[in-house]
Each structure stands twice: as C-alpha cells, then as structure tokens.
C-alpha cells in the first residue's frame, strides 16, 4: 500500500492592509496554491508576538509565515520594521527549539501582489513538505 502523503499545515499571519489584501487578490485573480495554508488576520504584522509563532510551531504547525506590508508601506508607519527585528529573534529561538530555519518565514506582500502571495505559499508548502512533519507534531 502506498504511504499516505504527508500534508503539512502552515499558519500564515497576514496584516489586514497589505498581505491579507494580497491574499484576497490571489483569490480574485484565481491564482491557485495548495490548501495547506491557514491565514490568521492581524491588524499589523507588528502585532504578532514571537510567542505566538513559537506556540504554533511547538503545538504542531509544520511552518509559520508572517506576511506584512513592504518596508515603507506599513499602514501603521513602522510596525513592519519592528516585525523584521523580531524575526531575527524568532530565528534564534527556532535553533533553541531544534527546529529547522525553513519552518519560519517573513515576507512582504502588498495588496497588489496576489501572484506573489500564491507563489510564496507554494514555496512555503514545498519547503516544509521537503522537511517532513514537525518534530512537535502530536
């Protein structure tokens, strides 16, 4: 019997103004991507506490991606600049938890980049598929 293909689950935090809108545009444009993504809308990428990312990964998410406005375009001026700094901290925490760096990603996706949203989600799912299930998966 063929082994059932592992279907990863990726949590995507998307800011309300750019990346969530970019995800909407991917929909309007019918850009297809794998159904392994679960988007959680936040007002700003700067709202995502690093603990949320680590909690998600240690509770069994195979990957987490934070998406925000491009630097300079943040609806809240510089929330994404802070997100960028936190991402460095998150990368260090991944190491401590014995998780591969590819399980976390930060991307800037604007409201007009539906194609980019679909491409990034495709890449992210491919990347965590290649890694196999999260070691924390229950």
């Amino acid at each position: 019997m063929e082994e059932e293909e592992y279907e990863p689950l990726v949590i995507a935090f998307c800011c309300n103004w750019c990346s969530y809108a970019g995800a909407d545009l991917a929909g309007v444009s019918r850009f297809q991507y794998p159904p392994n993504i679960r988007v959680i809308r936040t007002m700003c990428s700067g709202m995502v506490h690093p603990n949320l990312v680590m909690d998600a990964l240690t509770k069994g998410a195979d990957g987490v991606i934070i998406c925000g406005c491009h630097i300079g375009d943040c609806h809240y001026l510089e929330g994404n600049v802070i997100t960028e700094k936190r991402a460095d901290a998150i990368e260090l925490m991944l190491e401590d938890f014995g998780l591969e760096p590819e399980r976390f990603r930060l991307e800037w996706i604007s409201a007009s980049e539906g194609d980019k949203f679909a491409r990034v989600m495709n890449e992210m799912v491919e990347a965590v598929k290649a890694l196999g299930p999260s070691p924390y998966k229950m």
């Binding site: 936040t42 007002m43 700003c44 700067g46 709202m47 995502v48 506490h49 690093p50 609806h75 809240y76 929330g79 802070i82 936190r86």
Partner: peptide, 9 residues
Amino acid sequence: KGCGVCQAT
C-alpha cells in the same frame, strides 16, 4: 490605531 505593536512587545 490598534496596530498591536504594544501587545507583541
């Protein structure tokens, strides 16, 4: 404006 930078800090 509710961006939430505070809550993540």
